[in-house]
């Protein structure tokens, strides 16, 4: 029972972390290696608004999300757009940006254990004899809501449909009058805001540390690779797979193995089935 509940919570966390990455890759085929950095950035921005400027918690969260979205869009508009289509340059450039942001924060003195965000709702409740924080339950609820929202957004709104069209065939979308550059900027802004949302939801459960940026990136990549790069629903399913696998190893082997599981998942998936467990067949053919 314990495994079930914590596995569920962990899985939703992973899904939240990975959604932004999956969204950006799915739409513009851009592996956004600055994902982890954007996550940490939004944590620090929220903290700054909340503690330094002493704004309302909700307001500072909204502001942080908007700012991170803009930052992501700017990164795309001024840097990544110039290396569109060159997969390796995209990886290196976005990774270097992420590295610069994270290490920049570290240099500015954002390190140590002093940076925390308060939980939304304090207290906890017993479910089948297991204590669960209200906050974690809230996270699960919001996570489910976001997945549902994304589904509706991409199936029933104009922008969402345009994004989906682009994800399927960029050239065809261009011919239909969809501005693919603009859409890619929108996607990047969305993805960044999602990373930020994951941050403000998950960071109250711990400290805001720069190192988290790297771990978040690895987790996001592992979920997306296992789910199949470019497939959002695959990513959500893969999040559950990895989420439960992690909890199982933590229970039976020890906390150190949490990252080992994620990394092993990436390596094994890429070796055995690079298109991911739920990826499209087409990408499998990309292997020699």
């Amino acid at each position: 029972m314990e495994i079930l509940i914590y596995g569920l919570i962990n899985s939703v966390n992973l899904a939240l972390i990975a959604l932004g990455f999956a969204l950006v890759y799915g739409i513009s085929r851009l592996p956004n290696f600055a994902h982890g950095a954007l996550y940490v950035v939004s944590g620090f921005i929220t903290w700054t608004f909340l503690r330094r400027l002493e704004l309302n918690y909700l307001l500072s969260i909204v502001l942080a999300l908007v700012i991170v979205g803009i930052v992501g869009a700017l990164i795309y508009r001024f840097v990544l757009i110039r290396v569109r289509g060159m997969a390796i340059s995209e990886i290196i450039a976005s990774y270097a940006i992420g590295l610069a942001i994270l290490e920049g924060f570290r240099w500015c003195g954002f390190k140590g254990l002093t940076y925390t965000l308060p939980v939304f709702v304090p207290g906890s409740v017993l479910i089948f004899g297991i204590p669960v924080d209200y906050h974690r339950m809230l996270v699960v609820g919001i996570g489910a809501a976001i997945v549902a929202f994304l589904w509706f957004f991409t199936h029933y709104t104009r922008i969402g449909l345009a994004l989906r069209g682009m994800a399927q065939d960029e050239r065809a979308a261009l011919m239909l009058g969809i501005d693919s550059d603009l859409m890619a900027v929108v996607a990047m802004a969305f993805g960044s805001a999602l990373a930020g949302l994951a941050a403000v939801l998950l960071l109250p459960l711990g400290n805001i540390v720069v190192e988290a940026g790297y771990n978040i990136l690895v987790l996001a990549i592992s979920v997306c690779i296992v789910g199949g790069l470019g497939s959002w629903m695959g990513a959500v399913l893969a999040a559950f797979l990895i989420g439960f696998a992690q909890i199982l190893t933590v229970v039976y082997l020890g906390a150190h193995y949490q990252m080992v599981v994620a990394l092993l998942a990436i390596i094994l998936t890429l070796i055995v089935r690079p298109s991911g467990l739920f990826g499209r067949q087409k990408e499998l053919e990309e292997r020699v």
């Binding site: 690779i225 990436i266 390596i267």
Partner: peptide, 8 residues
Amino acid sequence: RGVYFAIV
């Protein structure tokens, strides 16, 4: 290829 090898 490409991205996949880089990631792994």
